[in-house]
């Protein structure tokens, strides 16, 4: 009896909370949409803040370079090593370079780069802008007649959109290098043979699909980090939330986009 009573008492409030959450979710979607719209409206207007864009590109690159080099290389080695036994069963180890390269170029390189960048770059953009919001630095820019959205958001989003595809290309080559080292050690394949076999199965569409994926990922990481930071709530807690929200949301969106772009690229094949 007591339990039934407590359930009936609990249920409406739980439902109300769910309703609030759903409403909050759609409100957030709308706000993100407005934020993206604002980006496209302001990005083409002067002042262009070229210097700041270059500085931000450099920041994005430097922040993730070491981790990406390391991860890319390890992914290449491990993937090659782990794939070998199943190919050996069919006596098809000569397919290893093609297999490795398909996996790296089409899926692993953009994804690994995006996930690392979401963690390193996305979170620091969220924290940086979040703390600028909380300490009223963004308001200070606003009241001095400058355009903080342009200076802070547009520059960072441009930087991630440019730099993350470059990093993804770099990751692909580092991972291939890892794969090559493992193959040459085990099968004694020469560098030129490996590369020939690696690029043979790849088409132009694959290349473009991969590149556009990386561009979309870069844009997503930048815009999500900026959105979280720029709209961060007051208080130091808000900064942590912004950084955390930037990573979680960006990773989530990256996976969804991955699925969507693979689908779309499939139609062109």
């Amino acid at each position: 009896m007591a339990t039934i009573k407590s359930i009936t008492k609990f249920a409406p409030s739980r439902f109300a909370r769910l309703k609030d959450r759903v409403a909050a979710f759609f409100l957030m979607l709308y706000r993100v949409y407005a934020f993206i719209l604002r980006f496209f409206k302001e990005v083409f207007l002067p002042p262009y803040e070229f210097k700041e864009v270059v500085r931000q590109c450099y920041e994005v690159g430097v922040r993730s370079f070491t981790l990406i080099s390391l991860t890319g290389f390890i992914v290449g080695v491990i993937f090659t090593k782990q794939s070998r036994p199943s190919l050996t069963d069919f006596g098809a180890t000569s397919w290893l370079p093609s297999l490795v390269s398909i996996a790296i170029m089409k899926a692993l390189a953009p994804l690994v780069t995006a996930l690392i960048a979401a963690g390193k770059v996305g979170s620091s953009i969220g924290a940086e802008l979040g703390s600028m919001r909380v300490t009223e630095q963004i308001d200070a820019m606003e009241v001095s007649g400058t355009k903080p959205f342009k200076f802070l958001v547009c520059t960072r989003v441009i930087a991630t959109t440019i730099t993350i595809p470059l990093l993804a290309t770099y990751t692909a080559f580092i991972a291939l290098l890892g794969g090559y080292l493992n193959v040459s050690q085990n099968e004694g394949t020469s560098y030129s043979t490996f590369m020939e076999q690696a690029f043979e199965p790849l088409t132009f569409v694959d290349f473009w699909a991969s590149l556009s994926k990386a561009i979309v990922f870069g844009f997503t990481i930048g815009i999500v980090g900026c959105y979280q930071g720029y709209n961060s709530t007051k208080g130091t807690e808000g900064v942590g939330k912004a950084a955390n929200g930037a990573v979680v949301t960006a990773m989530f969106l990256v996976f969804i986009e991955e699925v969507l772009i693979v689908q779309i690229a499939g139609w062109f094949r």
Binding site: S131, M132, T135, E136, A140, E142, S144, G145, K147
Partner: peptide, 20 residues
Amino acid sequence: LQELRIRIGFSFQNSALYDS
């Protein structure tokens, strides 16, 4: 508003200097 703000100086409670 942007043009008007140039004519107004706003000194913030916590200074709000740009840390970077």
